[in-house]
């Protein structure tokens, strides 16, 4: 029987370690070979390219609700099409339901999900850099209960990614960490930095990826933050927002202490204190 439970969702709010982990997976699956513009993972949930390949439809003619209603079937189809036994798909959408009341992330082709979480005080500065906007703008989006990525500027439905409903930062975390119909492993960015081997090895075991001795260490060495930065400096990075100067900025934990004003810190804690406490950020 064909195994169709093969999608591993790499889920996160933006700027929470998702790309670092995908770089690690690429190096792991490619025996230490890593070119950041040739990630070996399998695209993003919001890709128009994947959608149009599966539906033969000009998606710019579709309403967002129509797209979201078709998404579950698109990824069921993706899982059936590929011979390999795991697909690693990045997703910034919150885990929500579409207008038919179905989860936009389908149960049937899903093996599991990794959920990356990072202190929102650090996300704010990194997200502002990513959007080439101000920290206040980033915080405002993180506090917006209907916050979206790739909002199809000026009402033009042509962005190469669909609009992604993220909810607020807390809403995003709660949507992915509630009881879901598939296993979810929550990974703190701060733990990835502090105890890289243990965290990555645990994730590999959770996804049930067989590895040879030394393979994880080799992949971690290939994905040191400085190396990712150097590659971006030399060749650019295709996943960088066009408006932003660089994707790999600092990659540290606790940078917020020098970046945020007391007012901004209060704003974030007022909105997200409860979830922050749950993940030991307070």
């Amino acid at each position: 029987m064909i195994n169709t439970e093969k999608i591993v969702w790499l889920a996160s709010y933006p700027k929470s370690g998702n790309t670092w982990f995908r770089a690690f997976l690429t190096a792991l699956l490619g025996d230490g070979d890593l070119r950041i513009n040739e990630m070996k993972t399998d695209g993003i949930f919001s890709s128009r390219g994947i959608f149009e390949n599966c539906t033969d439809t000009d998606s710019t003619y579709l309403y967002d609700s129509e797209v979201k209603n078709m998404m579950p079937e698109v990824f069921e189809h993706q899982a059936c099409c590929y011979e390999k036994n795991k697909l690693f798909i990045k997703i910034h959408d919150a885990y929500t339901v579409n207008s038919k009341g179905m989860p936009v992330v389908p149960r049937q082709p899903t093996l599991c999900a990794l959920y990356f979480i990072r202190n929102p005080l650090d996300v704010a500065g990194s997200f502002a850099n990513h959007n080439n906007g101000t920290i206040d703008e980033a915080i405002s989006l993180m506090n917006d209960n209907q916050g979206c990525l790739a909002r199809q500027r000026k009402n033009l439905n042509v962005n190469n990614q669909f609009k992604q409903l993220m909810l607020s930062w807390s809403g995003h975390v709660l949507s992915w960490t509630q009881i879901l119909p598939f296993p979810v492993l929550v990974i703190r960015y701060e733990d990835m930095l502090a105890d890289t081997y243990r965290i990555f090895a645990n994730a590999i075991e959770f996804m049930n990826i067989p590895v040879a001795p030394g393979q994880i260490e080799k992949a971690i060495a290939a994905t040191q933050f400085e190396k990712l930065q150097q590659q971006e400096e030399a060749d650019g990075f295709m996943e960088k927002n066009k408006k932003s100067k660089s994707f790999f900025r600092k990659g540290i934990a606790g940078g917020w202490e020098n970046e945020l004003t007391a007012g901004q810190i209060k704003e974030i804690i007022d909105h997200h204190g409860e979830v922050m406490a749950q993940y030991h950020y307070l």
């Binding site: 599966c54 539906t55 033969d56 439809t57 078709m70 079937e73 698109v74 189809h77």
Partner: peptide, 9 residues
């Protein structure tokens, strides 16, 4: 035979 089935098409 030779049927290609995708999503809604």
């Amino acid at each position: 035979e030779n049927l290609v089935k995708m999503v809604k098409v």
